[in-house]
Structures are given as structure tokens and as C-alpha cells.
């Protein structure tokens, strides 16, 4: 990525070491702070963008699944888990949208109606996958995504059956997200941007942790 090299060189130039006293006025340092935030925003690759765009849809499906819990007679355990997933992934969607929009990239806007997920790109491009339309905006490329039939199966389940299916499908879904992070990290130049690295790493560890918790909950169901 030649782009990266140019930007790294620019950062190197402005980040001259060896200044021992903060003689600069606060205003100058503040200007430098915001300039550097802006600079940092150009240090990314198409793989980072693809990851953010994909993960927004991926997270959105987790919201659809989790929102079923209260209505479908989930146990308290699964309901709390679902509430936490909603809180966490909602926040992450918003962080990813901000990341994209800060960098002038098209931003996927998420609309959820029942089991249907609609993604509209903020720059006018639109893509939808709803009802029985599988695929759409790369959904079928994303690991761990549920098919519409699986979503409907989950939506039809009640009580303990819902709990079990929710855990199985959410484990599958989380594993997909973990794979997406690992795929991102396996690409040259990807996740060099601090914000992207931090977000992707957090998704990675949080979801691995949650997978372990869900596996434990599942195996407890077999007692």
C-alpha cells in the first residue's frame, strides 16, 4: 500500500522527537492533537473498510436475534445475555459507523423490521436483504450469518427450545465474527489504524469470551 507509506512518512515528519519541554502553547498542542487525529484517519486500507461495513450488518443480525428473547419466553439467563449483546453491539455499530463517516466512506445505515434487515448506504447506494432473499449485501460471504430460514426457526421457538436454539445460533454467529477479525488481521496493512485495531481486538476477545459463556450455558442445559 503506497498510501500507507506516504502517510507514515508524514506522521514521522510532524512527530519529531527530542523536545524535552512542552514550551508550545496549549493552542498549538491542541491544533497538533486534532491534526494528528485527522492524519490517523487516513491510515487505513480497503480491507479495514470492508471489515467495518460487513461487521455492521453482522452485528445487526445479532440485534434481530437478541430482540426475540423477551417475547419468546427466554429464560432469565438468556434474556440477560441478549440484553448485553444488544447493548454491546448497538454501541459497536455506532462506533463503526462513525469510523467510516470520519474517513469519508459510505456508511451502512441499519433498519430492522421484525426479522428483516435492511441496510441503506448513506451515500445513496442501497442494498437490502429481507424476507427470503438470501445474500444481498455480501451477507452470504460473512461467516456465521444465519439464513432467513434459521432466523424464522428461531423466531418460532419458545421457552427452553428458544434458549437452546438461541445459544446454538449465537455461538455460530459469534464464531463468524471471530473469523472475520482473524481474516482482517491476516491481511497486509490491515488494522494498523489504532481505532480499527482496538475495535477489532475488542470484538475478538469479547465474542470469544461470550462463546465460552454460551457453551457453558448450553452444556448446563444438558445436566
Amino acid at each position: 500500500m503506497p498510501l500507507l507509506k506516504v502517510i507514515a512518512a508524514a506522521v514521522l515528519l510532524t512527530a519529531s522527537p527530542g523536545i524535552l519541554a512542552a514550551q508550545d502553547s496549549t493552542e498549538e498542542l491542541e491544533a497538533l492533537y486534532w491534526a494528528r487525529q485527522k492524519e490517523a484517519m487516513s491510515r487505513y486500507t480497503p480491507a479495514d473498510v470492508e471489515f467495518m461495513v460487513g461487521m455492521i450488518s453482522h452485528h445487526a443480525q445479532a440485534l434481530i436475534m437478541s430482540r426475540l428473547a423477551p417475547e419468546n419466553g427466554a429464560s432469565r439467563a438468556v434474556e440477560v445475555l441478549a440484553a448485553r449483546i444488544i447493548n454491546a453491539q448497538n454501541d459497536e455499530i455506532s462506533i463503526m459507523q462513525t469510523w467510516l463517516s470520519d474517513r469519508g466512506e459510505a456508511v451502512p445505515l441499519v433498519h430492522i423490521e421484525g426479522l428483516n434487515l435492511m441496510i441503506h448506504m448513506k451515500d445513496g447506494q442501497a442494498s437490502e436483504h429481507q424476507g427470503h432473499q438470501h445474500g444481498g449485501h455480501g451477507a452470504h460471504h460473512m461467516p456465521g450469518m444465519l439464513t432467513q430460514a434459521q432466523l424464522e426457526e428461531l423466531a418460532a421457538a419458545r421457552g427452553a427450545a428458544f434458549d437452546r436454539l438461541f445459544l446454538q445460533y449465537m455461538i455460530q454467529h459469534h464464531k463468524g465474527a471471530v473469523t472475520m477479525v482473524e481474516d482482517l488481521f491476516a491481511q497486509d496493512g490491515a488494522a494498523q489504524d489504532e481505532a480499527a485495531y482496538k475495535l477489532a481486538s475488542s470484538i475478538h476477545v469479547d465474542q470469544i469470551t461470550e462463546i465460552a459463556r454460551m457453551q457453558q450455558m448450553l452444556s448446563d442445559m444438558d445436566l
Partner: peptide, 18 residues
């Protein structure tokens, strides 16, 4: 899936989030 399942799941909930 058996019907005994929900039992063990319950153990994890102590405090209600507030």
C-alpha cells in the same frame, strides 16, 4: 432437546441489573 434443560440455566442469575 430434553425438557430438563431450563433448570441449570437459571443458576447464573443472581442480581437483577439495576
Amino acid at each position: 432437546m430434553r425438557t430438563t434443560v431450563c433448570l441449570a440455566l437459571l443458576f447464573a442469575f443472581c442480581a437483577v441489573p439495576t
